[in-house]
């Protein structure tokens, strides 16, 4: 107690040395004031940083909680939506290596950041696909879902972007929304093959960048004649008055909307998972940083106390002696 009083005493002498407006703005809210480098070392800066790190940690913890609860809601939906594309893959197969003139790459990304590397992954895969599928007499365009992939692709390939879609996740994702969107995409781009790039959700920390290919009906027919998996299409009986071309067109459209729906859901799920783990590690980092800062703070504080004590004792002994 006496020591604290003494320290306060020392401070009073030091006060005129500091310009008052800066000082008051710096340390107005702290009780234990330390003058800036006059007699003892200032702990003000460290204390401010500790406070801000603590606040950041609170925010990241809250974001992790939010992401965890959103993830739980969306994960079941994403897993259920897998049942939509599986029959299509069984029927039409997935042919990522198909060689066509007009490809359209649909890059699925998120609108918000702070979710690890999922957006850069899908952009990277899209760029590779673009490089692979472009060539003489070939045209490759991008359709971009989400703000983040747009921001990345706008830098080097803005001439190849044909559509960009944002604000998809304002309401909870649902099939009507994605199908209207798929419809708009189909109406606005010409394609022989659509390649949908998204992050498939495996677990909270694992996402697989995935490409799903949707072929246009003409290409499906061409591939069917070439044989292979699609060659089995002829063994199906077609009901009603429709021709095979009509059925294939309907199928291709429906397949696109289903795969897009699944892709959007999987990507949203991966986004929340990635955000959760990113926020978890940043809370942990903030904790580590806080520990280090606390150590520095305490050391400085002790050092200043020791210095003051030495000064007092030596002053007293000088008076006595």
């Amino acid at each position: 107690m006496a020591m604290a009083a003494l320290r306060r005493e020392g401070r009073r002498f030091a006060t005129p040395l500091l310009s008052s407006p800066i000082r008051s703005s710096l340390i107005s809210h702290s009780q234990e004031q330390a003058p800036n480098g006059v007699r003892s070392i200032s702990t003000q800066v460290v204390r401010n940083r500790m406070k801000s790190v603590k606040n950041i940690q609170k925010i990241t913890k809250a974001m992790k909680m939010v992401a965890a609860s959103k993830l739980r809601a969306i994960q079941t939906r994403a897993e259920n939506s897998r049942g939509l594309w599986q029959p299509f893959t069984a029927l039409l197969g997935d042919s990522p290596s198909v060689n066509v003139k007009k490809s359209v790459i649909v890059t699925v990304s998120s609108d918000k950041g702070l979710c690890g590397g999922i957006n850069s992954t899908s952009v990277k895969i899209s760029r590779i696909l673009h490089k692979l599928s472009s060539g003489p007499e070939k045209e490759t365009k991008y359709v971009i879902l989400g703000e983040k992939a747009k921001a990345q692709l706008i830098r080097d390939s803005k001439d190849d972007i044909s559509l960009s879609i944002t604000e998809l996740q304002k309401n909870p994702l649902n099939y009507s929304q994605v199908s209207v969107l798929a419809d708009d995409i189909l109406k606005n781009v010409e394609f022989d093959a659509l390649r949908i790039v998204f992050n498939k959700f495996h677990s909270v920390v694992q996402f697989m960048p995935t490409v799903s290919t949707v072929l246009s009906p003409e290409i499906v027919e061409r591939e069917a004649e070439a044989g292979g998996k699609l060659g089995e299409l002829d063994s199906y009986e077609i009901e009603g008055a429709e021709t095979k071309g009509e059925v294939l067109q309907n199928l291709a459209e429906f397949q696109f909307s289903c795969i897009l729906f699944n892709g959007v859901l999987e990507n949203a799920c991966s986004e929340q998972g990635a955000r959760m783990s990113a926020m978890d590690s940043s809370s942990r980092n903030a904790g580590d940083m806080l520990d280090r800062l606390t150590l520095t703070y305490n050391r400085t504080r002790q050092a200043s106390i020791t210095t003051e004590l030495i000064e007092i004792i030596s002053g007293a002994s000088a008076l006595e002696g």
Binding site: K158, D159, I161, S162, L163, S164, I165, T166, E167, L168, K170, N171, P172, N174, Y175, S176, Q177, V180, L181, D184, N188
Partner: peptide, 17 residues
């Protein structure tokens, strides 16, 4: 109410949205 549609779509012409 579950099936609500909302998104914003912009076409790109000559590298500009």
């Amino acid at each position: 109410s579950r099936e609500r549609v909302h998104f914003s779509l912009s076409k790109w012409v000559d590298g500009k949205p």
